[in-house]
Design a protein around this nucleic acid. Structure first.
Ligand code: SF4
Ligand code: SF4
Lengths: 162, 162
DNA sequence: TTAAATACGATAAATTTAGTCCTATTTATG
DNA sequence: CATAAATAGGACTAAATTTATCGTATTTAA
């Protein structure tokens, strides 16, 4: 449930690796594939998709490879997820194919799921690749979670306006 | 990507429906199945699972059915998701089978994914079924999203402690 | 005694995800 | 200019997961 796809993981791993080579030669798919033990053909496709979505730049030919098209701080987790797997959609109806849902006519959760969807997009848009890099060696302090929880709760399901 | 399973949707729909009958007879799976056009056998399993996880109570026999075991405010979306589909785990390693991941030895996102996972659990723990009921007829105000976004960002990826 | 209901294991069907194969194109280098 | 290393991408296969069904047992009001 709510598992990231392997392709997303490959994308996140690759973006952080590419950034480490920022001032050097572009990094090849084969290099990343070997370094992180990722199936080469599949990784190629993932990187190509990131290029199409303007997250990476590519250089073709012998000394070719990939580089960042913008800084880590300007790439959100949501950007990566949407680039690789298409729009994040908590439900089928949000994704547009509501006529493919047998519950649509009577559904009692549809509108609230849109609210959750909005908050969830904000959640992932608020996490940048720079954050992932920075925290990669840190430990989240569990005892701090209560404060975070109450702070977070305030933000969700705001009072009705209008 | 990040789609709720149909079973989760059936659970959420059912919990809200069961609550509407709070002071009446217990609601049968068949009633909910017809009302929301949900496959009966599958819905039965979903409701049984909610009973096993102390979210619903059941009454067997002819006039049997289901009722809430606690108020909507005391049931979080996370409770429901975990009851139906098991622990929410953003990655395989978080779910415990890290020896099934070929990237584990070299992975550069593992620790940060744990951070995201924690925040995500807080996110869904902070949404109660009462919230879903209350908001089912409201509209989220898009223009308010910026404020929410910046407030939300502050909570994520806290400064390193220790 | 009967019928309506929950309980639940086993299995099948459908869908999605993960990975492979193949071919084309680009380009640095000898 | 020939070669080899690299990206680009379509088509396909395999694996895994999700969704749904089947069958049987048990409970209980009427
Ligand atoms: S209509 Fe309801 S059940 Fe159908 S996809 Fe939307 S939220 Fe889910
Ligand atoms: S080790 Fe890294 S790649 Fe493997 S499951 Fe964990 S986060 Fe994902």
């Amino acid at each position: 449930m709510l598992r990231l796809s392997k392709k997303i993981e490959y994308a996140l791993i690759s973006i952080l690796e590419v950034e480490k080579h920022a001032n050097l030669e572009p990094v090849s798919a084969k290099f990343i594939s070997r370094r992180y033990n990722i199936p080469g053909e599949l990784l190629g496709k993932v990187l190509q998709t990131l290029v199409r979505n303007n997250i990476l730049n590519s250089v073709q030919g012998v000394k070719g490879g990939y580089a960042l098209s913008r800084s880590l701080g300007e790439i959100s987790m949501l950007d990566v997820m949407e680039a690789i797997d298409g729009p994040v959609a908590l439900t089928a109806c949000i994704d547009g194919d509501f006529n493919n849902c047998d519950q649509y006519p009577s559904c009692n959760i549809r509108v609230s799921m849109e609210v959750v969807q909005n908050d969830l997009e904000i959640f992932f848009a608020g996490i940048s690749m720079q954050d992932l890099k920075t925290k990669s060696n840190n430990i989240f302090i569990i005892s701090e979670m209560d404060k975070l929880k109450s702070a977070n709760k305030k933000n969700l399901f705001r009072e009705k306006i209008n």
